[in-house]
Design a protein around this nucleic acid. Structure first.
Length: 838
RNA sequence: GCGGAAGUGGUGGAACAGGCAGACACGCUGGUUUUAGGUACCAGUGCCUUCGGGCGUGCGGGUUCAAGUCCCGCCUUCCGCACCA
């Protein structure tokens, strides 16, 4: 495909005579000409102290160096580049940085599979991506680059971890975690896709392990409430997904006495008003409470067997909500605090150990899960909220509002009133209180992997968990050589005995380092801060520099990170704010989610055989045509189906635009005010409309306006005012500048052919003359009964009366009316008149 | 199951605040230049038509002088969450 394209290009050039060659748009030659010059000029450097321009921070999500850039990168970085370059043209000092999210599993997999050194593998990929980005003409500030796998960077991961450790925000606990029996490793929730390990598709199970967590749940309310300031600036979809993820619910905690136990057990419920309908009590089978309640009872052996069975159930099967309810009666009873009824206690896996208190009151009439369980175990169902359908008959629990019955003091009350009343009663009697719960869990950051940030903790037999002192940071990774990186349930770092065995920083006795590494989401939770001060060896960043640039004005990235990365970054920002390091609480002021590039309707993948290689596309069509195709395809947040777009069409348009620059015969600096007014109006209209389109993320429309101007200019040269008219120069220069944000090579070459020095990127967005935006005539539509029957050319300032008279006299209107009487005439000067017949 | 978003020509998509539906492209058709064309330029291109016009923004209603746009009820597709008490 490539060779065919390049062969035809060569033969084309060979067949042309010299005049044609001079006038040919040679994409590859243009790329080769300008790249070294831009390297020299570095037009997008943003760090100069004496720069008087106002600052703006445009940020693209940084890439993982898994190989060379692909079509998805090409789209994302083309869009981010339009925004960054536009603001540079508007006179801003734009910081548009890039770095590499360089820790992570693929490096380790390459090491396991091919015996590669993760360090070498990673840095080679970074070098390749960097070279590709330069050629792709990304307007990055190359002076601010870093890699998260550099000790100079992850030093500060460790430093932040320790600050959180000091504040109790980083802690270790035992918990049931996702476990892949094949990979022999812990998985984060996000790595479990439909109950399967995202890497090997093995059914995931649960395992009890001691792991490090960050206490993000402490920030749940702020993460939720602060979204108010992102309203209208972030995609509504992302805000919604974050709200759902945090999952705040309000209800009550109610204490139930347990027969034969000193302490009562607290349950959480969102429906305390249905307390009188509770007929049994359920504890999570895998909770400590269940084991304790079962201990020593006749049901103990049955419970142990059940628990064993539950543990074997894969995550995939567990998520199947149509599964039959199962459980074990523990031979024990809880006492309903409002009516003293004895509720049998069951252990079941439909109650989650880590949500609420791991125990529930079951109200089968008004909760489907409880009803399913009640029917499976023959338990009574008591309706306490009246409704048309009886759950005992239908098998469908009712959750609607309605008057309460069988509920003592709540009888007759509606849901809201009943909740208020029962809360008062519970508080009065000291058996309950209002409570809030979250779906969000603390962030598990331990990973039993090699290629990540070592957790800077030393385990000492006498002092316990001891923080590595700041002056001993960073705790650097030992070399991979000699370590067994294969997943085996414990961190590969455990095999580096020289590294693991160390002196306790507190007592000096023999101790061991923590062998887990951090989730790579830690790396990306603060990288946007590091750009402000990337080379700081004494601190993560200088707060003064961060204050200058942050928060990020515009963040651009895929919706795949809608929850985790963005939530974690927001969390970090708030923690750092509380530590006094930041003066803002939200890191990303505006967010744009770009779509994906797909092929023939589905995501590209090697196995599907629909993979389009970016390098092939670039070789065939050139950088600018690919960038233009990405931008012109449609709204940025929509997916692009590569089968539906036309990179060759993009290239033809660019050639057409480029040729204009060779036609201009007026000299640089020619005064446009003497030029052709019609073309000037088209130019100023296009520049004005394109700017609005870019600022509202309608980049495809901005390109359409540029295309219209190219068409108008072509016409003006060939059959209008002619190439010598200064309006033509004005138009072509405007086109070069408008194109500079999308197709930088073509734009720069046009700029040069127009007699200007590089670089067009700093030429400045053309000033719009408002006088040229005013039309001298407007097309007025004359409707009869809502249908267009005639058109009039009228001055925009025409009065309603005059327009009405003109419309009534319009031949098309008279014909359509056919003598009918007129009921009313709606006049919307100057664009529309609607004559309504009686 | 719950929550959300979106349905416009053959295709990708335009349409400010309820006021000319289909901008700009792709594709297709015809023409000009060319030994040739995967080039360039010009013209045409929503559907139907008895050439008067009629019909058209997923479907069915409604509001309005006027609806792709607002309201009600469906259908379809995509996305997120999924025993969260």
């Amino acid at each position: 495909m490539v060779s065919k394209a390049s062969r035809s290009r060569r033969s084309t050039v060979a067949a042309m005579d010299s005049a044609e060659v001079r006038d040919a748009y040679d994409v590859m030659a243009i790329q080769d000409r300008w790249l070294p010059i831009w390297d020299e000029l570095a037009p997008f450097r943003s760090g100069r102290a004496d720069d008087p321009r106002p600052k703006k921070y445009v940020l693209d999500m940084f890439p993982y160096p898994s190989g060379d850039l692909h079509m998805g990168h090409a789209e994302a970085y083309a869009l981010g580049d339009v925004i960054a370059r536009y603001w540079v043209q508007r006179g801003f000092n734009v910081m548009h940085p890039i770095a590499w999210d360089a820790f992570g599993l693929p490096a380790e997999n390459a090491a396991i599979k091919n015996g590669e050194d993760p360090v070498r593998w990673t840095y080679e990929n970074i070098a390749q991506q960097k070279a590709s980005m330069r050629r792709y003409a990304c307007s990055f500030d190359w002076d601010r680059v870093f890699n998260t796998c550099d000790p100079e960077y992850y030093h500060w991961n460790q430093w932040f971890f320790l600050r959180m450790f000091e504040r109790g925000l980083a802690y270790r606990k035992d918990s049931n975690v996702n476990w892949c029996p094949n990979c022999q490793t812990v998985l984060a929730n996000e790595q479990v896709v439909a109950g399967l390990c995202e890497r090997c598709d093995t059914a995931v199970t649960k395992k009890k392990l001691t792991q490090w967590y960050l206490r993000i749940t402490d920030y749940a309310d702020r993460l939720l409430d602060d979204m108010r300031e992102l309203e209208g600036k972030w995609p509504e979809k992302v805000l919604l997904m974050q709200r759902n993820w945090i999952g705040r619910s309000t209800g009550a905690e109610v204490q139930f006495a347990i027969e034969g136990r000193d302490e009562p057990v607290t349950v959480y419920t969102t429906r305390p008003d249905t307390l009188y309908g509770a007929t049994f009590f359920v504890v999570a089978a895998d909770s400590d409470l269940a084991a304790e309640l079962a201990a020593g009872t006749a049901a103990e052996s049955e419970f142990v067997a059940y628990l064993e069975r539950v543990k074997q159930i894969s995550e995939m099967d567990r998520l199947d909500s149509s599964r039959e309810k199962s459980g074990v009666f523990l031979n024990r009873y809880a006492i309903n605090p409002v009516n003293g009824e004895r509720l049998p206690i069951y252990a079941s896996d439909y109650v989650l150990a880590d949500y609420g208190t791991g125990a529930i009151m079951a109200v089968p009439a008004h909760d489907q899960r409880d009803l399913d369980f009640a029917r499976a175990f023959g338990l009574p169902v008591v309706v306490v909220v009246e409704s048309d359908e009886d759950p005992r008959v239908t098998g469908i629990a009712t959750a609607d509002d309605g008057p309460h019955i069988n509920s003592g003091p709540l009888d007759g009350l509606g849901k809201a009133d009943a909740i208020t009343r029962i809360l008062e009663l519970l508080v009065e009697r000291g058996t309950g209180e209002p409570a809030v719960n979250y779906r969000l869990r603390d962030w598990l950051i331990s990973r039993q992997r090699y290629w990540g940030t070592p957790i800077p903790i030393v385990h000492c037999p006498s002092c316990g968990e001891v923080a590595v002192p700041d002056d001993q940071l960073p705790v650097t990774l030992p070399p991979a050589e000699g370590l067994d990186l294969k997943p085996k349930g414990t961190s590969p770092l455990g095999g580096a005995s020289d590294w693991v065995n160390t002196a306790c920083p507190s007592c000096g006795g023999p101790a061991t380092r923590d062998t887990d590494t951090m989730d790579t989401f830690v790396d990306s939770s603060w990288y946007y801060l590091r750009y402000a001060d990337p080379d700081n060896a004494a601190a993560a960043f200088d707060p003064a520099l961060v204050r200058e640039w942050l928060p990020v004005d515009q963040y651009v990235g895929g919706v795949t990170h809608a929850i985790l990365h963005l939530l974690y970054s927001r969390f970090f920002t708030k923690v750092l704010h509380d530590m006094g390091m930041l003066d803002f609480t939200e890191p990303f002021t505006r967010l744009l989610n770009q779509g994906m590039v797909v092929m023939d309707g589905s995501a590209m993948s090697k196995s599907r055989g629909n993979l389009v290689r970016l390098s092939d596309e670039l070789a065939e069509h050139g950088v600018d045509a690919i960038r233009l195709t990405m931008v012109f395809a449609g709204p940025p947040e929509d997916d692009i189906d590569w089968a539906d777009v036309s990179p060759s069409g993009s290239r033809k348009f660019l050639a057409r635009a480029w040729r204009l620059s060779g036609d201009v015969t007026s000299m640089p600096g020619a005064d446009p005010s003497t030029g052709d007014v019609e073309l000037r109006k088209a130019t100023h209209r296009a520049v004005h409309d394109a700017a609005i389109a870019v600022e509202t993320f309608r980049f495809n429309v901005a390109v359409a306006r540029t295309m219209e101007l190219v068409n108008a200019t072509r016409k003006a040269i060939d059959s209008g005012c002619g190439a010598a008219d200064p309006a033509v120069r004005e138009a072509v220069e405007a086109i070069a500048i408008m194109l500079s944000i999308v197709a930088p090579y073509t734009a720069e070459d046009m700029w040069s052919r127009l007699g200007h020095e590089p670089t067009v990127f700093l030429a400045g967005w053309p000033a719009v003359d408002p006088a040229l935006l005013v039309e001298d005539t407007v097309t007025c539509v004359v409707q009869v009964g809502g249908k267009v029957r005639d058109r009039l050319e009228v001055p925009p300032s025409i009065s309603e009366e005059d327009l009405r008279d003109l419309a009534l006299a319009a031949p098309g209107a008279i014909k359509a009316l056919d003598g009918a009487a007129i009921r009313t005439v709606v006049v919307r000067a100057p664009k529309l008149v609607n004559i309504v017949p009686a």
